Simulated assay, not measured.
Amino acid sequence: MKEIISTDEAAGAVGAYSQGATNGELLFTAGQIALTPDGELLDDEDIEIQTEQVFDNLTAIIEEAGGTLDDVLKMTVFLADIDDFDRMNEVYGSYFDDEPPARSAVQAGGLPAGVDVEIEAIVSLE
């Protein structure tokens, strides 16, 4: 059975999608961008600040579903410019200890609202 996850602690959905959806075992988050819960778009900030906001959003959604970042199985990172990978990765790595999740990172042709990074997660809630 599908359950929609929604929290005011993360950027609200701005289209026909949910912040997250779960079947009680797995949580799938929507791609999160550098948009604050108050609706402020951080597209003019550097990749590090944008990545931190993305993780703030992801953390809030995951916690609303009953999980933590330690429960993340897989993340997909979309970058507007793959040359930002090292700087994004430094921030990304600070959120995980010895057992980071699986990850893919790709350069996308264009990201929503002109941001530099978007990240989605698959999380185990068991």
Rank of each mutant, 00 (worst) to 15 (best):
D43R: 12
E45M: 12
V123I: 09
F96C: 03
A34Y: 06
N89G: 08
L26I: 15
D8Y: 09
F28M: 13
D71I: 03
E120H: 13
I82L: 02
A30M: 04
D97S: 13
T51C: 04
I62G: 02
A30H: 12
P100R: 11
D98P: 06
V106H: 14
D98E: 11
D81I: 00
D83M: 04
I33N: 13
G114W: 06
A10W: 07
T22F: 00
E3I: 11
Q50K: 06
L26W: 14
E126R: 12
F78M: 11
L35M: 11
V106K: 11
E9T: 04
G15H: 09
T36I: 02
M75W: 02
L41K: 15
K74P: 08
G24P: 01
L111Y: 08
Q19P: 05
Q107L: 03
V123D: 00
N57T: 09
D8M: 06
Q53C: 03
E52P: 04
A34G: 05
E45V: 01
E45F: 08
M88W: 14
P100F: 05
S104I: 08
F85D: 00
A80Y: 11
D70E: 09
D38H: 13
K2F: 13
S18A: 13
D46E: 02
F96P: 07
T29F: 00
F78Q: 13
N57H: 01
E99A: 10
L58I: 04
I61D: 00
A30F: 06
V77F: 09
A11R: 05
F96Y: 07
A60P: 12
L35R: 09
E9Y: 12
I119R: 03
Y95W: 06
F78L: 14
D98S: 07
L73M: 05
I61S: 02
D81N: 15
G114L: 03
P100Q: 01
D81Y: 06
L26V: 07
T59L: 01
G114I: 01
E64L: 04
Q19H: 09
F55N: 01
E126H: 12
E90T: 10
G114N: 03
D44E: 13
D46Y: 02
A105W: 12
N89Q: 10
N23Q: 05
E99Q: 07
T59S: 10
E52S: 01
S6V: 08
E9C: 14
I82Q: 06
G39N: 03
V91C: 06
P37K: 09
I4W: 07
L42Q: 02
I82C: 05
N89H: 12
K74R: 14
F78R: 14
